[in-house]
Design a protein around this nucleic acid. Structure first.
Lengths: 337, 337
DNA sequence: CGAGTGCGTACAATCGTATGCAATCACCCT
DNA sequence: AGGGTGATTGCATACGATTGTACGCACTCG
């Protein structure tokens, strides 16, 4: 910037005023303005964000903390966030917590120190209360996406897990299923809500939750595979399996095939997320699709448009979006036994 | 830092010297040192990276530009990079190019302006020469991962695509296959090398490349599905399909099943990448596994340990790693026709 | 003709950290 | 006892941008 000033023969402060483009309290001659702009262009001048940030200006950085980037659903969500951020001129700093909350805390510190203008959290990190604590006592806005809609003093954008699971189970019941099992991951955020919704839905149709019908496994195909193996060892085998996640459902489909079961004739399977591969599994997966773009847009909007008044957290919006049931070929009428 | 200085009664410069931990030219009394450290701790002081960077210090930021984050393979690679970076005390800034090189260029500018200490590029961006141009004329070190091993003035860490494809085709030939088709994506980087390796391998076994045996599709399951559909319409159907990517192979498996073909009895299918889901497809996928951790480790090492002497690009290391053939159940002996 | 007014620009402080150089103090040696 | 020396610490400045304030100039009006 100094070079630009020298080249145009004006002072560096004038250059700053011209290039910032902001409405200045002091007027600038159009002539000077033009000279500065062209000079800046020829010199290939780019402002230094560090110096900008040092003065307390917005850094145009959006921090993202994600629990597990290898989950295809979160990968899609990250893409949506970075797309949305780019549209608003923001850049994305990604922190990966690897599912370990201590790392998430460290990341948090880093992101705060780097003066992100805002932070998006992808997935629930509430298994470590310290992180949530830290998050609350800060000045930058934070919004949690897909952390479940529990009230914890953090703004959030969530999906209506209860409605989603209810739709799935209604669908299965319509097909004649009553012995419906559930495969969940760690009891966190969305997963927890989906489990509770499953319990509520079973109660609503007057069906007991049989022993072993609630499986807890890791959130990957291997987990789904193990879960189905355990379910098939039960005396009363389920006729349908509701997986809390598409990747788990993939493992269920795999194990069913490995055991010689035909889906959906012998077993119906459902997922949650509608990851890209869900339309290409064998058979294709009945699942719940969330309006990712809309949800991300809402979250980023809240963050950037300053809808989060720090003085009054109770007034923060906590939008909840409805998932859509996508019926494919992994669910079908119950087989005559 | 000013507060720390006030609390301990020493000057701010002393505090800086103590907390930076760097070997100072001037000695510091242990007593003072201790007082400063404890004061800093009680005040919860954290250095401001912006101010640090402004002084020209390393920012401990590692920039990552990825072509397509929704590809599970790249997601895994990102995880590996962020893990490796974290171990060395670096943080990761992620830029997502969405496959569009103009965005990649913009990202490049951003990352450079943000004073990343180094940049990792994931996947080949060479379809836009301008980006490569920009990359060469800069002062921060850049390493390209999985861009193919072409010489373009950028340091790179690559996989031996030729050896991988050769291993796959040798495996298929051993099983009796001769009519082997190839499904690739856009002719970029690794994909291009894999295609060339396929052509070379066919030539080596004295097999012609039949019309239509070279399919170009998008790098997703839908692409694989379309490709197989086209291949099955040929007069001389292939008995084996080599996909350039696991996600494409997933689509091939799907389409085969949809058309009533049994894999591997009617058709053998192979992939490349060994994504997590490859072990849980139906049937499980024969593919090539790359030493992701080692490759990422090599790349980050080159970047951070200063092995990239700007004065002599010809001396830059360009390590090439060998992929390992993982034989699963999607390949089998050719069916008697 | 002088003063007021308004417009355009330069000066300088500031953000938080790092660092060369000067200054101070004590202590030791001669 | 005085000067030299080494051990500590403080002062001042720079990094690059933003911004409040002061200054200069020309024009106009009384």
């Amino acid at each position: 910037m100094r070079d630009v000033a020298r080249l145009t023969g004006v002072s560096q402060s004038t250059v700053s005023r011209v290039l910032s483009g902001a409405p200045t309290a002091v007027p600038i001659a159009d002539d000077t303005r033009e000279r500065v702009v062209t000079a800046a262009r020829t010199l290939g001048y780019r402002p230094n964000p560090l110096a900008r940030g040092l003065r307390g200006m917005p850094t145009m950085l959006l921090g993202v903390i994600v629990r597990d980037i290898t989950d295809p659903f979160f990968a899609g969500a990250i893409e949506a966030v970075s797309l949305e951020a780019a549209q608003r001129g923001y850049n994305v700093v990604l922190g990966h917590a690897h599912g370990r909350a201590d790392e998430a805390i460290a990341l948090w510190g880093v992101l705060e120190a780097r003066h992100c203008d805002a932070i998006v959290m992808l997935g629930d990190m509430s298994d470590q209360p310290r992180l949530v604590e830290d998050l609350r006592g800060t000045h930058i806005p934070v919004v949690a996406l897909w952390e479940g809609s529990k009230p914890d003093g953090i703004a959030s954008v969530s999906v209506d897990n209860e409605a989603g699971i209810r739709a799935v189970i209604d669908h299965l019941v319509e097909l004649g299923h009553r012995r419906i099992a559930f495969v969940g991951g760690r009891r966190l955020g969305d997963i927890r809500e989906r489990e509770e919704a499953y319990l509520a839905a079973l109660a609503a149709i007057g069906e007991p939750v049989r022993d072993g019908y609630l499986q807890y496994v890791s959130n990957d195909p291997a987990g789904g595979s193990q879960a189905l193996a355990a379910l098939l060892d039960l005396a009363e085998r389920p006729t349908a399996v509701v997986a809390s996640t598409d990747v788990i459902a993939m493992g269920v489909l795999f194990e069913a095939n490995a055991r010689g079961l035909t889906v959906p004739d012998d077993l119906s399977v459902t997922g949650f997320d509608d990851i890209p591969l869900a339309a290409f599994s064998i058979p294709t997966l009945t699942t719940l699709r969330m309006p990712i773009r809309e949800m991300v847009g809402a979250a980023v909007g809240m963050l950037i448009d300053g809808q989060l008044n720090p003085a009054d957290p109770s007034a923060w919006p906590r939008p909840i979006f409805a998932p859509a049931l996508v019926i494919r070929t992994s669910t079908g009428p119950i087989a005559r036994t």
